[in-house]
Design a protein around this nucleic acid. Sequence first.
DNA 1: AACTGTGGTATCTATTGGGTTACTGGAGGA
DNA 2: TCCTCCAGTAACCCAATAGATACCACAGTT
Lengths: 114, 114
Amino acid sequence: MALRLRKNKAPPPPLACPLTQCMSLLGKAWTPNVIWYLSAGPRRFGELRHDIPRISAKVLSARLRELTGKGVITRQVLATSPPSVEYTLTALGQELIPAINAIVEVGSKLKKKR
Amino acid sequence: MALRLRKNKAPPPPLACPLTQCMSLLGKAWTPNVIWYLSAGPRRFGELRHDIPRISAKVLSARLRELTGKGVITRQVLATSPPSVEYTLTALGQELIPAINAIVEVGSKLKKKR
DNA sequence: AACTGTGGTATCTATTGGGTTACTGGAGGA
DNA sequence: TCCTCCAGTAACCCAATAGATACCACAGTT
């Protein structure tokens, strides 16, 4: 019996794919970690560097800029001395938390093979 | 007033970080798409290529090997003519579906800036 | 006769993304 | 006095990754 291509019942993640959209953020190094640490409340640049010791300033600032641009976090300059900058999850950003929790949940069950 | 580092109340994603573990899978190109299409049921190699037109055979086979190794999908050779191979989400793999749905959900709300 | 579908592998190349280091300039703490 | 801390930016380097292409051998369809 010859093989035919079966139709897939899953609708394609439609038009300009939100999945791809979102993964172009989450898929980059350290992004989920940044969101994770912001989920507990506003956090300054240096604090995030502290939270995630192996992240470089370059990458952290790139991620924060991207997340700000996409409306996931806000950036607020505080009149401290020296001036400091606080990053906060927006309502949209909060919506990512369940996703990240789900990922963590599965992560702990993955086989370590390969 | 001097600035002090505040403690972050979020516990660090502990020991050998499940988040990083899981993202080393999901973060690679096309992985979420593959899982998305498998969520509707078992699917052959060629069918997946068809579902995701822009994926190359090389990358698809790499992803499938990785997912198999981590216990997210199973690989089953069928005695068709010619022999075909079917990939299926495991129970663990099914657990990723809510995560991906959550990601899609947010993806559609992201600003397009940058 | 020619094409599609089976499930991949081998090889080469281009890109890019992340790491590293150095620098800013002033203030407060030891 | 010297060190740390604030929030980054600029320049350079390298390894990993994904893309493109070609190839396998055979069966069934048109």
